[in-house]
Design a protein around this nucleic acid. Structure first.
Lengths: 199, 199, 199, 199
DNA sequence: GAGTAAACGAGACGGTACGTCAGGTCTTTCC
DNA sequence: GGAAAGACCTGACGTACCGTCTCGTTTACTC
């Protein structure tokens, strides 16, 4: 009865898909999130609008996929954090890298665009948690569990809470632009977190 | 020289201003942020579109003002947190209230709408910091200073950092919907924070 | 170089075109020229405004086309005036019909609307001359040439001038409402013209 | 009962009246009839909009007055046509002057603007007949009556008709831009008219 | 001269329409 | 049958003016 038949994935043009994601990325960087339109993406990608609507349910979804493609361009599989045995040093390394990433103008615009979509779209938020945040968080949790085994972290610490204490201040400061993002700040967060969750 | 002459504030219609803010609030709650349009606000408020454009530079600014009017409807002056001498009890009280507020559907939509605007609009973010966040943060900092004097908090603790560790996890969890917001969570954050910053 | 790509004529929706012209005609008759707006035409025709702007450059052009469709609804081809051999009788017949047409309220409003546009729009005036006036004038000139051959009109008479003397007084009287339009007046104009241009 | 008290003519500011008419004239010449707005006139004249609405019922009326002021700037009283005794010569003189006037770009725009208003506004048309056309036509009729007395024109000729045959072709040709306006054309119209109405 | 009433400039107001842009749907044409 | 192209309807954008309605501020006429 439903006319809304699902498109046949096997016939999908990989060429068009790539062109769309590439165009989306370029447009977000160039003109900013506000001015990115499906129309502009289609034109830039040399693609019919219908080709976008056929495969993505919303503009947010396209942006999300564009961002996803950008993120895991490197490697899918065994994402892992350094584990030298020195938790403090390892975390500071990672946090400094994160701070630098957030400060990088090339990354900033897309991440802001994505967050603007996520705030008001629960589905997209779920997708974000599953596909973007989870792999990274899993890696972080693995490193923390290793620290717990080494007695550097309270054995009963709620690792999700540890991650939140570690990352949320940074995220909020970046989102609301309430303060500078630099290496000292990264180090402070690690120090505080370790103090809060030490055995 | 400039033709863009500034509107005469003294002639401004308070009646229209109120109607616009009220209509904005109602629309955000009813139809959601995405579907709030200047056109809809004007119609609902019984106001010409130009009256909105005359006094606000962007849709975000209207939403911000609507939210501002909602927030400080209660009281302008001496916003203060409870100070019973027991920092832990006082903070848990406040944090539980904050958690409840975030969970209240009536508050949720406008706050999300506002955050969506803030993410991509630095000016609006600054306005948010100054007019909405600052007064509240000042009150919180005052309570924390009192705790420092009472020896319940490290004397050299960076109070901005304390606030971030206390609130940012809650904020992030709410924004990204990564976990439940309840009294236990509120208490955990207080416990963690006090442990991290105790003398 | 120009982004303003020309619309593809072959894809044009005939259905929309007809609806627009019909709505225009109806609106002119009902509410009067002054209140005919693109917006109203679009709504009435159940059409997007863009569809009008895509195919017509100005409101005047739409009105013109609506009028054109009305005029040659009858027949394209062999428009011809009666030729009984009696020039005076034939012209009086035609002039009386013309007078009646101008006096018909159903015709009056659209013609006035069209003239209001023509006065200040040279392009539209040219279009009027070519597409509306010319076919009719050609038929008239043919009849006059026949009369010249029959010796009822000076052989060297400037036929354009004859037409002007015959019709312009009627047109001006109608446009400025300077006097009554009736059969007597029509006859007078024929008498005068024949006297002025007799061999 | 009515609050709409009539304005007190005696208190009217002549300075504002002049400024408005001057601004109207200037705007019609500069930006064209289409873009002349009450708002623009008020701004240009350094006058409040209400001052215009207080004294004129419509944009057409302002344009009419501006044109009126332009026309009879020269002289109010005994407008009279030359009467040398030679009707043909006198008429050709007048008609050539009229042709020149219509061809003058400085006159053309305002006259077109005025006609655009008149076409759809019967009140304005009446005002036009009474205040602009009548004085001139009276003078012309006086000259024609003199010619009748001199036996140069049929004694029973309808002078209004004579005027129409003389002027309407010129007017129509100018309005619809159907042909050149020059001295030869002026002469032709006089010749034709005299032939049509000779005794 | 002081008092006052009306016209004045200014411009905010509720509106209508403008002409443009983008959203998402539908149709046509090609491959 | 997917994909490009693009016309279509919808609806919001931000601007220009409409005609009305206060605001203070001249201006000019009473008293």
């Amino acid at each position: 009865m439903s006319n809304g038949r699902a498109p046949d994935r096997s016939r999908r043009s990989e060429r068009s898909r790539q062109a769309i994601l590439e165009a989306t990325r370029a447009l977000i960087s160039e003109v900013g999130y506000r001015k990115v339109s499906i129309e502009a993406i289609a034109t830039r990608a040399g693609v019919g609008k219908q080709t976008i609507y056929r495969w993505w349910p919303s503009k947010g979804a396209v942006i999300f996929d564009a961002f996803l493609a950008l993120s895991d361009a490197g490697g899918e599989g065994g994402l892992a954090l350094p584990d030298t045995g020195d938790l403090e040093a390892d975390l500071k390394l990672v946090m400094r890298a994160t701070v630098a990433e957030f400060a990088d103008p090339a990354f900033e615009k897309p991440i802001r665009a994505l967050n603007a979509e996520i705030v008001n779209d629960p589905d997209l938020a779920a997708q974000y948690r599953e596909q973007l945040a989870r792999p990274v968080d899993d890696a972080k949790r693995a490193r923390l569990r290793s620290a717990q085994r080494a007695g550097q972290l309270a054995a009963d610490a709620d690792l999700d809470l540890v991650l939140e204490v570690l990352y949320a201040p940074l995220f909020q400061r970046w989102l609301h632009r309430t303060g500078p993002l630099n290496a000292e700040y990264a180090d402070s967060l690690v120090d505080i977190t370790l103090k809060a969750f030490r055995p």
